[in-house]
């Protein structure tokens, strides 16, 4: 579905990503793990068009069997239109807008009649959002804001959902709810690419994972294999 080929990304003069290669298959959940500053967020931002690679290609195949398109030169709104939606780090809800308005902004590029139905299905997924639909998003708790951010990024009907640290600053119980929901979203056919500090949960959720270290892919493989890899256990899972 998504193949990142040898991309180099600079932020200002800093060379952040060195020849990153990633592959995301249809229907998979892929995790990107790594320490602070390893380049996880940069990778995601490059995929969604918020940053430009200086070298390399990002090939995206919306549906299996179709010809891939290079999205590395496309504008963010074109990429969203093509079916890639990103749920940004730190949630980024629009604090002064109501919950419903936040969801409507998520459907900004759509003009079909299904929008109202999709809003209802987000409310079904997270009933608390339905109860508080007219309240300002800034008044929600951190966990509810995360649910809103997730619901909002689903409003563009993505085929590939990109999540940047959905567990950031949330209570363990809420993280579990969110991750269970991600599992469910995936089972409905949405491919997921997730960046996580919480490596235990990320490896548990995902099918495959990539480990980034200082802007390079250090390791990759099946999540279950990585979880039992002694090196990973020591560095990321806190197992001695």
């Amino acid at each position: 579905m998504l193949t990142v080929e040898n991309i180099d990304v600079h932020r200002g003069k800093t060379h952040v990503l060195h020849q990153i290669d990633l592959h995301v298959g249809h229907g998979e959940i892929i995790a990107l793990i790594g320490a602070n500053g390893a380049g996880k967020t940069t990778t995601l931002k490059t995929i969604s068009g918020l940053l430009r690679p200086t070298k390399g290609k990002i090939l995206y195949t919306p549906e299996a069997g179709k010809a891939p398109i290079d999205i590395s030169t496309m504008a963010p709104e074109q990429i969203v239109g093509a079916g890639i939606s990103q749920c940004p780090e730190g949630r980024g809800v629009f604090a002064q807008l109501s919950v419903k308005e936040n969801l409507l902004v998520g459907a900004y590029l759509r003009s079909d009649k299904e929008i109202e139905k999709d809003i209802q299905s987000v409310y079904e997924m997270f009933p608390i959002l339905g109860e508080r639909s007219t309240q300002a998003a800034g008044k929600l708790s951190g966990g509810q804001q995360m649910m809103l951010a997730l619901g909002r990024s689903l409003m563009s009907q993505p085929k590939l959902l990109i999540l940047d640290e959905p567990s950031l600053g949330l209570a363990p119980l809420i993280i579990e709810t969110i991750f269970a929901m991600l599992q469910k979203i995936n089972s409905q056919g949405v491919t997921i690419l997730i960046v996580e500090q919480n490596a235990v949960m990320a490896l548990d959720l995902s099918h495959r994972a990539y480990v980034l270290e200082t802007g390079r892919v250090a390791l990759s493989g099946l999540s279950s294999d990585l979880a039992s890899n002694p090196q990973i256990q020591k560095s990321y899972l806190g197992v001695e």
Binding site: Q86, F94, L97
Partner: peptide
């Protein structure tokens, strides 16, 4: 309003 509140998130949702 979304651009005012959080331009990065607005951009990621497809707002030019």
């Amino acid at each position: 309003l979304a651009v005012r509140e959080d331009e990065m998130a607005a951009n990621a949702l497809g707002v030019n």
